[in-house]
């Protein structure tokens, strides 16, 4: 079915683009209630997060369970800069991305020599370290009390304080991020990333600096996560460490896995489904993590490439998960 949808979309590219754009722009009118609009805003933020994680997992074939940590770093960076230094949003937003990207590069330099399973644990540990540092660095982050009173973003003197305006702003950034990642996908750098995923030795023999490109991919993914963090901080206006824990990393991971690794549309699909689902089934709220775990296992067993992806999330030699996989021929699909 996915293939048919794709074919149709490719045939009527212009019409589909206009229809999707119109739908996205009209969403505030269609939804009406601020509650639903809030969900739409969160979807946009998580589209940025899952798309950027996909850059790390789906393109380059690495792994990260620290994505929420970089999201948090971005959120805290932007919040603190605007409260304590009074910088405008248009400056704190890129700074949040750059700080997250820089820390991502440093962490990458330290951990990306690790292979598969070890990389998973390395990033998992880093995610926890970030959360605990935020928790305990009370002089800067106010620790467990969190940071309240983050100002609404002001762009050229125009304060974005209502949900409709915020939705348009976040939508704008989400679209830009997705488009940039798409452009990257079809470029020399993107091809090098994918080549790394497919065969590191082969890529190195073709002159791709394996380690440097891994660090670049990781840092770039973290940069976008930082941007998402800033957008989140100025939206909820109160942040605390527990919003950026490992649970959140797993949520983003599940979105990428469910939607589809290595494709542009996959993480978007995943983010939409996993943000809407808990809202529909409010009574399941406490079992959210159980649900994510179940989804991951089911995806792993029956459709490792996700709904719209075309390759399993886990690289070939990722032994821990291969026990869940059935025979390769069945799970590998022919068409993206």
């Amino acid at each position: 079915m996915i293939a048919e949808i794709k074919k149709f979309a490719e045939k009527n590219k212009l019409v589909v683009t206009i229809a999707v754009a119109a739908l996205l722009l009209l969403i505030p009118l269609i939804l009406g209630s601020p509650y639903l609009l809030r969900v739409a805003i969160m979807i946009c933020i998580f589209v940025i997060l899952s798309s950027s994680l996909n850059l790390i997992i789906g393109f380059t074939g690495m792994f990260s369970l620290a994505h929420a940590a970089f999201y948090g770093i971005g959120a805290y960076c932007s919040a603190l800069l605007s409260i304590k230094v009074g910088l405008p949003f248009l400056i704190t937003l890129p700074l949040a991305g750059i700080l997250a990207g820089l820390i991502g590069a440093i962490i990458g330099l330290a951990t990306l020599r690790l292979r598969e399973t070890f990389l998973v644990f390395g990033t998992l540990a880093f995610g926890e370290i970030v959360r605990i540092v935020i928790m305990n660095w009370t002089s800067l982050t106010r620790g467990p009390m969190g940071i309240p009173g983050i100002p609404f973003p002001k762009i050229f003197g125009f304060e974005i304080s209502n949900y409709t305006h915020y939705y348009y702003m976040v939508l704008f950034f989400a679209v830009i991020v997705v488009l940039l990642i798409r452009r990257l996908y079809n470029s020399r750098v993107g091809r090098a990333f994918i080549a790394l995923r497919e065969d590191e030795t082969g890529a190195a023999s073709m002159g791709v600096n394996v380690f440097a490109y891994k660090v670049w991919a990781f840092a770039l993914g973290c940069f976008f996560a930082g941007i998402a963090g800033a957008l989140y901080a100025h939206f909820v206006r109160y942040i605390s460490a527990d919003q950026f824990g490992v649970n959140e990393s797993f949520a983003i991971l599940t979105m990428v896995a469910l939607g589809g690794t290595g494709s542009i549309i996959g993480p978007i699909v995943g983010a939409v489904i996993l943000m809407v689902f808990p809202e529909l089934f409010r009574f399941l709220a406490e079992y959210r993590m159980v649900l994510y775990g179940l989804i991951l296992i089911v995806i792993m067993m029956f459709k490792p490439e996700g709904i719209a992806g075309f390759k399993g999330m886990f690289p070939r030699d990722f032994d821990m998960m291969s026990i869940f996989k059935r025979k390769k021929s069945k799970t590998e699909v022919e068409e993206a």
């Binding site: 020399r188 091809r191 994918i194 497919e198 065969d199 030795t201 073709m206 002159g207 290595g262 390759k311």
Partner: peptide, 19 residues
């Protein structure tokens, strides 16, 4: 053979032109 199996034939050659 160490081709990049989930890349197109042309993209494989393009990775060759990386440098």
């Amino acid at each position: 053979i160490r081709l990049f199996s989930y890349m197109s034939v042309l993209d494989n050659v393009l990775v060759g032109t990386h440098n």
